[in-house]
């Protein structure tokens, strides 16, 4: 992936921070101590629909575990960061497709445009996030998102001993959605769904930096026929699909 660039970018800050922070004699470890989202990157996802099977829920399961996303047992109010959608042509002539749909991390995200407090925002590297400290729960973003990527937290969720400490659980009354596993990406890891898909599933999901011409995703998006959902809306989504 783009570990090299990230290491280089982080090194300056890391050396500075390391010099101040670490006790004398302690050496800087391999991973950069400080990283920052940079416009040099443009994170994106590519989903090969041909390799996605209907029965497999590796990506959605991994997301729930990684991000502590609960199921309330109330389908109308459950939180979904990523979901499997069955797509069938209206005449039913072709076999149905099954594919994951998640936040598309658009280049022109309507949720960000409508948010009155700038709680929804787009990071320099293209990841669209909700600043849950700032969300007032007006839900206008949920009206504006054409992908139904967002959920309001309808119920109190308490911190659980089994929760992944790297991802905060949720305060009720705020809106949330897929983060591209930003905590993992900043650590140089893949999003949990992609990792699970490659490990347990069929390797249908690919994540990477579109701005890096050497990355696999950039090469595949450049050379293969890929599509985005509702490209007609002009939002420039960054979840690409192959074989739709």
């Amino acid at each position: 992936m783009t570990m090299d660039r990230r290491t280089v970018l982080g090194l300056g800050g890391a050396v500075a921070a390391g010099a101040i922070l670490l006790a004398p004699g302690v050496r800087l470890i391999a991973a950069p101590n400080k990283t920052e989202a940079s416009g040099a990157q443009r994170w994106a996802m590519l989903i090969d629909v041909n390799h996605c099977t209907a029965a497999c829920t590796a990506c959605t399961d991994a997301c729930r575990t990684e991000n502590n996303v609960p199921l309330f047992g109330d389908p109308k109010r459950d939180i979904h960061w990523i979901r499997k959608v069955e797509v069938q042509d209206e005449e039913g002539r072709r076999p149905p497709l099954s594919l994951p749909v998640l936040c598309n991390h658009c280049e022109h995200p309507p949720c960000v445009h409508v948010c009155p407090t700038e709680a929804s925002f787009i990071r320099k590297d293209g990841i669209v996030l909700v600043d849950k400290h700032r969300c007032i729960g007006c839900r206008y973003c949920m009206i504006a998102c054409p992908y139904k990527a967002r959920s309001l937290v309808y119920f109190q969720v308490d911190v659980d001993k089994a929760s992944n400490p790297r991802v905060p659980v949720r305060g009720k009354g705020v809106v949330e959605k897929c983060t591209f596993c930003v905590h993992r990406v900043d650590d140089g890891q893949q999003p949990a769904c992609v990792e699970a898909c490659q490990a347990a599933g069929e390797g249908a999901m690919l994540f990477g930096d579109l701005n890096d011409p050497q990355s696999e995703i950039a090469q595949r998006v450049r050379t293969l026929k890929t599509e985005t959902i509702r490209a007609d809306l002009g939002l420039k989504p960054h979840v690409h699909y192959q074989g739709l």
């Binding site: 800050g13 921070a17 922070l21 670490l22 991973a31 950069p32 101590n33 400080k34 990283t35 920052e36 989202a37 925002f121 990071r123 320099k124 590297d125 990841i127 996030l129 600043d131 400290h133 400490p165 790297r166 930003v182 900043d186 650590d187």
Partner: peptide, 18 residues
């Protein structure tokens, strides 16, 4: 720190809340 971490993606490993 919360502001720069969430919004700018600045993560200082040794100084994170964790």
């Amino acid at each position: 720190r919360r502001e720069v971490t969430v919004r700018e993606g600045v993560r200082i490993r040794d100084e994170s809340l964790l």
